[in-house]
Each structure stands twice: as C-alpha cells, then as structure tokens.
C-alpha cells in the first residue's frame, strides 16, 4: 500500500517506460484506488499520441486520396478506390495483426539500401507499427468523407471561381479545399472521435506492450485481472474517454465555427456527434 502522493509520482508517467516511474506495476493486494486513477491516466498518453499523430498525417494522405478518387483519370481513381475499400472494408483489429506479422517477417539484421543498412526492429514496436496502421486506416475513412464533401460542393461556387478566372492550384486552394473542409468537418469530427476510441485496440492486438508500457485500456485490463474486480478500472477508463471525447468535440467545434464564419448564421453547419453514420 502506498499513499496517493507516492502513487502519483510513481505512476503518472509510467506509460512512457520504467525510467519514468516505478519499475514494477503495483500488484495484487497492494493496489489501491489512487494507483488505478493515476496509472490509467498515464496510459492516456499513448491514446493521445496515436490519435494526434495519426489524424495529423492522415489528414494529408486523405486529401490526396480523396482528390485521387475524384480524379477523371482511372489510373488515379482506381488505386484510390481500392485503398479506401481495403481499409474501410476490413476490421482494424485484423489490420493490426496483418501488418504486425508482415513487419515481423522483415529481416532482423536490417534492410540494405545501397551503402546504408536500415534498421527494422523499431517498426514492429507499437509506437511505430500501430501508428502506421492507424494512419492508413484513418486516411481511408477520412478520404471517403472528403470525397463525399468534394462531390457536394455547390456547383455555383465552382462556376463563380471559373468566372473570376481562378484555375488550377489557386482555385483549389481558395475555393475547392476550404469548401470541402467546411462540408466535411462535422463528419470528420466523428472520425476523429472514432479514431481516438480505436487507439484502445493497439495493445489488445498483436503489438506487445514492451516493459508494460501500455495505453489506458491496457492498464484498466491489467487492474481488472489483478483485483478480479471490473467495477473500478473499466468505469474509470470510460470516464477518461468521455472527457477526452468532449475535448475533441470542443476543439473541432472551434475549428468548425471558424470554417463557417463567413456564412449567415442559419446556414452554418452544426456539429452533431452521430457515431453510427461513419464506420
């Protein structure tokens, strides 16, 4: 048994590794409520890490794939279609397994590219491998959302752009892209929340939690198994996720207001969390 202060200093950064807190996780009867509160909170570091980086990189790939899908050239639209189908049509859980097993097969000694040898070991670790899967997955879902938005840009807007003599890059940057983003934003918010929730899958799939560095649900599961009591750890992690979800809604809501600020009040898109319409 340790005091709450000790729990806090020993566990709040434990998810980053042994060097950042207690070497061993609290076990069996020495587990108290504060341990559960702080260790599960420290696991959130990984959920936020995966969510932010995957969303950030995914945003750019998704824009590219959405444009590819909308392109008149079959050479661009077909691969984009396949990419979206592959990642939207299969479970993320299985994607994790597949990519992990594929990465494990890479030669342990590294890949030789000309004179340099590229190390491959780090790729099988969750922070890189799982991030890669989440990045591709969210890119596919977001690309579908962006593609839908691209298709529903009002015809008049594009005609107005033509009338002003905008073409190519400047037309895209000033008209197409902002309008697409504005139309897609409510759905994109849902996707962000879903991705945040999907990060809990990482340490339950193939990726091992090295040195017991895991995410919030990994620790909640650990506590539930250790104390044989699911009624503390799981509600706690649920509560944390409700708070994070509200934070995402607040953040994306602020962006949504900015994207819609030029419109008359009645025409502004309202942000509504409708989870079932996305995945």
């Amino acid at each position: 048994m340790s005091s709450c202060g000790e729990s806090f200093s020993g566990l709040i950064l434990r998810a980053l590794g042994r060097d950042f807190g207690d070497r061993l996780l609290p076990r069996g009867l020495e587990i108290n409520f504060c341990d559960q509160v702080f260790l599960i909170a420290s696991g959130l570091i990984w959920n936020v890490y995966f969510a932010i980086l995957a969303l950030f990189f995914g945003f750019f790939l998704a824009t590219a794939v959405a444009l590819g899908k909308a392109s008149p050239s079959r050479w661009l639209s077909r691969p984009a279609d396949w990419f979206v189908f592959l990642f939207r049509g299969s479970p993320l859980f299985v994607q994790f397994f597949f990519v992990y097993e594929a990465l494990v097969l890479l030669p342990r000694t590294g890949i030789e590219i000309g004179p340099i040898t590229m190390d491959t070991q780090w790729m099988t670790r969750a922070w890189a491998g799982a991030l890669f899967v989440l990045f591709l997955n969210t890119s596919a879902y977001t690309a579908e959302i962006f593609f839908g938005a691209l298709k529903s840009i009002p015809k008049g807007d594009m005609e107005a752009a033509d009338a002003y003599g905008l073409t190519g890059w400047s037309k895209f940057r000033r008209i197409t892209f902002p309008t697409m983003l504005r139309l897609a934003w409510p759905s994109y918010t849902n996707e962000a929340i879903f991705l945040l929730h999907a990060t809990t899958l990482v340490f339950f799939s193939a990726f091992p939690a090295w040195q017991q560095m895991g995410d919030a649900l990994y620790y909640a599961n650990y506590f539930a198994a250790q104390t044989f009591n699911p009624f503390v750890a799981y509600p706690l992690v649920g509560l944390y996720f409700i708070v994070l979800t509200l934070a995402v809604i607040g953040l994306f809501g602020a962006v949504n207001r900015r994207l819609n600020r030029h419109l008359p009040r009645a025409a502004r898109a309202r942000l509504r969390f409708r989870p079932q319409y996305i995945r």
């Binding site: 945040l196 929730h197 999907a198 809990t200 899958l201 339950f204 649900l217 909640a220 599961n221 539930a224 699911p230 799981y234 992690v237 649920g238 996720f241 409700i242 979800t245 509200l246």
Partner: peptide, 9 residues
Amino acid sequence: GVPDIIFFL
C-alpha cells in the same frame, strides 16, 4: 463517449 471495446471487456 466510451470506446466499444471497453464494453466488450
């Protein structure tokens, strides 16, 4: 607000 996998566990 809560990931579905938490419910499954």
